[in-house]
Write a protein that binds this DNA or RNA. Structure first.
Lengths: 253, 253
DNA sequence: GATAAATCGCGAATAATTTCTCTATTGGAG
DNA sequence: CTCCAATAGAGAAATTATTCGCGATTTATC
């Protein structure tokens, strides 16, 4: 009897998290209410295809089969077909997909053909590296760099003068910047993120290990290394033996 | 009639890819033949819990409920429970999980309590940033840095002298280094990766956008930004409107 | 032209992951 | 000491993602 209430309570808790305050991390969410729901795993694979297609194009090829793509990426050909179907570009049997069209369609699909402006906060080693990165192929342009350290402010890093963090919110607001890149120490992440949100960013690319608590309408994408590293170290530490070729699941004795 | 043969052919193609040459990217593979199969998504979430648990511990707390963790991370409480169950650390009803124990168990599970040695190749801006990063909490130690540019060789970056790339394979072999970190330009990625494999690395942490073609026993984990960025830019470019608050998945009537 | 080989595309089946439901503990309040 | 609220845990159900099976289409070859 009281049992029933319990579940309801926990269910409620879940619901309200989701609906009232949950920052949409998309790590978490796999379906989304966008025009057509795009499987997140597919979305994350698209840049791989794009990269490969550019290679093929550089080699002078004009068409490619999904079999070829799959073999180069070690994916299942069907999966490649499904992913590419998202772009609405059709392939021709016995020939494949038109490379130039596919490239354009994927870029379009990902929003990489129009430039999104972003600010970066935290010009440490990683922030510096990102400032040096050319994101133009990814439709991204870092138009402002900020740091809280007085001795960094005023320095020019990769062509951008570092501004004091006090200017951040106004800078974002005045220029309507939709995206913030967080490369500060984890301890500062939450407060800097809040400044970004106060300025009106719609999305935050979070390179810190901190879990941000932000309003629902702000999209947060985690990009810190730990998730990726976890997969590697777990395998090396516990599964090293099974990385050897073709050892069956259970060692039979 | 001939139809039947066709499918068989494509099936065969898939099979042989997988069995004969596929580098295990773990992006791709979701179940794996290790001792117990660990869901990759869970594995990737564990560092998040770990990070949060350390925060709680720093605040002097000794136990935490999965409800609390879930609320901080905007996850489903059940999911947190399932993930934590991987560690075999049990929680007490009405109390929660013992923080110190959980931290130790997760670190153990991820292999972060023993140090894995790695070499890094490509001391550009990203490579430099990684060299400056302290990975000791992640059970990783970068013990050698390499670059092909003669003017970089001999320089000391974050306490490590850059070695010429010609030394790479022997360095790895002599010291039994199990892991290579790839931060070279994409065009050099394949050949450097092959040198790493020749030296005997078991795993490669690939920060380039290149799709590596390596033997089956080498674990390759992609860490380039494009996947993460794709999720963000797609949402900003196409889904901005749906980032508006509180649109429930299904409206209940 | 007819035939064969390669490949796309769709719908179904399978597998993996997440979420839900229910039960059993536990600690605290009356 | 009994009841209540919070929570873990285990199994079922739902959802999501991947893989398979088949028919249709296209190009090249004979």
């Amino acid at each position: 009897m009281s049992a029933k209430r319990e579940k309801i309570l926990e269910s409620k808790a879940r619901k309200s998290q989701e609906e009232l305050m949950g920052a949409v991390t998309l790590e978490n969410i796999t379906s989304d209410p966008r025009s057509q729901t795009v499987p997140t795993p597919s979305l994350r694979r698209l840049p791989l295809y794009l990269r490969l297609l550019r290679d093929y194009q550089a080699q002078g090829r004009t068409v490619v089969s999904c079999t070829q793509l799959a073999s180069d990426l070690r994916f299942d050909p069907t999966q490649v077909r499904k992913d590419l179907a998202l772009t609405k570009v059709g392939g021709r049997p016995k020939v494949g997909y038109p490379i130039a069209e596919l490239i354009a369609a994927i870029e379009d699909f990902l929003g990489w053909r129009r430039t999104i402006e972003a600010v970066l906060v935290g010009v440490g080693s990683l922030g510096t590296a990102l400032l040096g990165y050319n994101f133009s192929l990814y439709g991204l342009s870092i138009v402002g760099a900020f740091d809280s350290a007085p001795d960094k402010v005023g320095q020019v890093v990769h062509g951008r003068e570092i501004m004091p963090i006090g200017y951040l919110t106004n800078f974002i607001r005045q220029r309507g910047i939709p995206m913030g890149i967080l490369t500060v120490p984890a301890s500062a992440a939450q407060s800097v993120a809040e400044m970004m949100v106060a300025g009106g960013v719609k999305a935050i690319w979070n390179f810190t290990s901190a879990a941000l608590q932000l309003p629902d309408h702000v999209l947060v994408e985690r990009a810190d290394f730990s998730a990726s590293l976890a997969v590697l170290t777990r395998a090396l530490a516990h599964g090293a033996r099974s990385l050897a070729p073709t050892i069956p699941k259970k060692e039979v004795t």
